[in-house]
Design a protein around this nucleic acid. Structure first.
Length: 761
DNA sequence: TCCGATCTATTTTTT
DNA sequence: ATAGATCGGA
């Protein structure tokens, strides 16, 4: 074991050795924030602190895992693995599993994800006969989530005149009622949503002093990463837990606060000074990550924000390369330019793919980039987007597991009671829902032992229902007899999901089968993995059951699954939010257009705009050596072409750091951009000219005239390749072609959009 | 009850 | 462009 302290700079060392009392570390981007945090924990352990007395909270599973690995490599596995380290949500979920009975929750409560929450809200809306357009489920959930993050219960919400007036003014006076029903339904299902994990932990600590006392004693040292992203609920929990020892360390950077939209409160950093007047404040200002150009350019951008804590981030690194600006006429061309640029750097500097990252504001932007990378033959990996665990078939199977573990889990039940089809239709389900409201009990309870309450339902259907209940119960009995994989496989076989998919027998269903197999593989890996202390509850549990797997999976929504990433070599694609905490030598920030970045819904208020600017700051500071930014003058949004202006953020970068586009290229583009006729034509033309106009060495793709297409012709499609026209129908704008693409299958293409080139007649 | 046709929202970011 | 929800007919 080496002396840890010699590996730190002065500021970092100071922050590490002051082990007692409240400490706040304001750490600029790339200043070794994680390093300070991990070394601090390692230092504590080295000085004899009990690993079980240390709690470290992060926002992502990934951050927690990485920190744990680094600590274990610093001071050894044995000590390191016993530190309680995890996301707020996962740590609090664990506390609630152990203590939830105080609040009337069973140990096996389900965690509803956003999808489940929205379904539940939709259900409530239709019960209350409310318009889904007025009461948009996403909006309602957002309202409820914000309320809970600020520790408002449904009752508080209904009793608050300001909130009520606001909802009435917004034309949604019944939001509070929906909130109330929503909460009651969650409770009846023995379920918590993400916000409940925080809300209920607060309740627990507020109302049960003996429970609070237990955790206050246990956690002698508390460390919080990304403190600027905590919301009020998290703030209060931490404050309560730390109240006894006051050994609390928070690390944050107000310039990187990008989650205000979901309730994060920068004020928490300022409150820290008030709550702990005798705190020590350390500033980490030396950036080790990026070149001078990047650090200075980013500093210049963030300086435009009014709300910020003054600090001076600087670096000793080289000057570095200027920031490049790519201007494209269309989103497709943007993708091509980026792909070409990456290809160029790869060749000229012999760089691996993993040195490159492409960052965007919204997930939807990934498509044009992906296509370009594929054409250029550059391997890539997308982080985030539609998570594996939210795919339909995966959720379906997981719903079986959920229902087996918690029979009251209503969203799970509704998903699968008739999938695969077993003759339990909509009418029956509606009747059951009414009954479950009337009798205040779960549907599973009603159908487990059918009695007089089910008189409305005919005999044959009742048999189907009891068969279903019996089947679920037969699985439940095996929960602690089989390990996770044995039971998961047993359930998958018994319910016939695979058989149903095999019967469908198309490209889609083959894909779904693969996903289910992948899920089962993940469960097998889980079952065989050595249990890590603390992972399965307090002291570890001998068998890795399906219940344990489901506890882990509920909070594992993002790119956490099978990290084969270490050796693989690919370009990373992700949203800027997902990129926080990561770094790459070469970073491309794409889609720098007004109304996209900054987002159209965030240009209304100064604070929202400043959050967008912080997001841009985060994007810039991900880069070690080179930043390239790009924008497109037109872009497909919602399936139609729209024109866009360059983002105001481009101008906010000091011109001295930007490499102007190559002279002739600029002239060429400018001519195009300035031509009003061109823009006008683009608006009218069904297909964007961009693909054929770009200067890449791609073959221009020109669609053949729609009217000359005939049945039986071989045609080429840009994405699907060559195929044969099976059928043509409709006329004019609605003309449709059914084309069979070998290896892909049949596709219905609306010729207004799809470009088809005739290969032979 | 099932199937296909039609309609509609989706695009801000995530635990 | 596309998945999902909804509706109407068999």
């Amino acid at each position: 074991m080496t002396d840890l302290l010699t590996q730190l700079n002065d500021a970092q060392r100071e922050a590490v050795i002051h082990t007692e009392g409240p400490v706040m570390i304001i750490a600029g981007a790339g200043s070794g924030k994680t390093r300070a945090l991990t070394y601090r924990i390692a230092h504590l352990l080295q000085r004899g602190a009990d690993p079980f007395s240390i709690l470290a909270l992060t926002f992502t599973n990934k951050a927690a895992r990485e920190m744990k690995e680094r600590i274990m490599s610093l001071i050894g596995d044995r000590e390191g693995r016993n530190v309680w380290m995890g996301t707020f949500h996962s740590v609090f979920a664990r506390i609630l599993r152990a203590e939830g009975h105080h609040l009337g929750y069973p140990q096996n409560f389900t965690i509803y994800d956003t999808d489940d929450s929205k379904r539940l809200i939709r259900g409530i809306l239709s019960e209350l006969n409310l318009d889904q357009k007025v009461y948009n489920p996403s909006y309602i959930l957002h309202r409820i989530s914000n309320a809970k993050s600020n520790l408002f219960s449904a009752t508080d919400y209904l009793n608050n005149p300001e909130v009520q007036t606001a909802d009435a003014a917004a034309g949604k006076p019944l939001t509070g009622e929906i909130f109330r029903t929503y909460s009651a339904r969650l409770k009846r299902a023995d379920a918590m949503d993400f916000d409940d994990l925080l809300y209920n932990t607060n309740l627990l600590f507020r109302d049960f002093p003996e429970v609070l006392y237990k955790y206050q004693h246990r956690f002698r040292y508390i460390l919080v990463d990304e403190y600027q992203d905590t919301n009020h609920a998290q703030y209060l929990i931490i404050k309560r837990m730390a109240a006894l020892h006051e050994n609390i360390t928070v690390v944050g950077d107000d310039a990187q606060s990008i989650y205000a939209f979901r309730g994060a409160n920068i004020q928490n950093i300022l409150n820290f000074k008030v709550d702990y007047p005798d705190h020590r404040l350390f500033r980490l200002e030396q950036n080790y990550r990026s070149t001078k150009v990047i650090v200075n350019a980013a500093n210049g951008v963030i300086a435009k924000n009014k709300d910020q804590i003054k600090k001076t981030v600087w670096t000793d690194n080289d000057e570095g390369m200027p920031i490049s600006l790519l201007r494209a006429t269309s989103d497709n061309e943007e993708g091509t330019l980026v792909a070409n640029s990456i290809f160029g750097f790869k060749m000229s500097k012999q760089l691996p793919n993993k040195h490159f990252a492409i960052l965007y504001r919204t997930n939807a932007q990934s498509r044009s980039i992906e296509e370009a990378l594929r054409r250029q033959g550059i391997p890539y990996k997308i982080y985030g987007g539609l998570s594996f665990y939210s795919r339909k078939e995966v959720k379906d199977l997981l719903s079986y597991f959920r229902l087996v573990i918690n029979p009251n889990d209503e969203e799970a039940l509704l998903r699968i009671i008739n999938y695969p089809a077993r003759g339990i239709g909509k009418t029956t389900i509606e009747k059951l829902q009414v009954l479950s409201n009337d009798h205040q009990c779960s549907i599973m309870e009603l159908i487990s032992k059918p009695d007089h309450r089910l008189t409305e339902i005919n005999r044959g259907t009742i048999t189907k229902l009891t068969d279903f209940a019996t089947m679920i119960r037969s699985f439940a009995v095996k929960l602690d007899k089989m390990n996770a994989f044995e039971l998961a496989e047993h359930i998958t076989k018994s319910v016939g999901i695979m058989a149903a998919l095999k019967e469908e027998d198309n490209i889609e269903s083959v894909n779904r089968i693969e996903n289910i197999e992948e899920l089962l593989n993940a469960i097998m890996e889980f079952a065989e993995r050595e249990p890590v202390a603390g992972e399965l509850g307090e002291e570890g549990v001998p068998q890795r059951s399906l219940g344990h797997f489901m506890q882990e999976v509920a909070l594992l929504t993002d790119a956490d699954k099978n990290d084969d990433s270490e050796n693989a070599d690919y370009v990373s694609l992700m949203t800027i939010h997902a990129a926080k905490g990561l770094e790459f030598p070469y970073v491309y920030i794409v889609g720098l257009e007004e109304n996209l970045f900054p987002s159209i819904q965030s240009i209304g208020t100064r604070s929202e705009l400043e959050e967008e600017r912080r997001l841009f700051y985060v994007a810039l500071t991900r880069a070690e050596e080179k930043v390239t930014i790009s924008y497109a003058e037109s872009r497909y949004r919602w399936g139609s072409l729209s024109l866009s202006e360059p983002s105001r953020f481009i101008e906010e970068i000091d011109i001295q750091y930007i490499e102007s586009p190559k002279k002739n290229q600029q002239d060429f583009r400018q001519k195009q951009a300035l031509s009003g006729l061109d823009a006008f034509q683009r608006k009218l033309m069904p297909t964007p000219p961009a693909a054929s106009k770009n200067e890449s060495n791609d073959e221009p793709f020109e669609a053949s005239d729609v009217d000359s297409l005939q049945n039986g012709m071989t045609v080429e499609h840009q994405k699907f390749g060559t195929g044969k026209i099976i059928q043509l129908e409709g006329a004019g704008a609605n003309k449709k072609a059914t084309v069979f693409f070998p290896g892909i299958g049949q596709k219905q293409l609306l010729l207004k959009f799809a470009k088809l080139k005739i290969c032979d007649a």
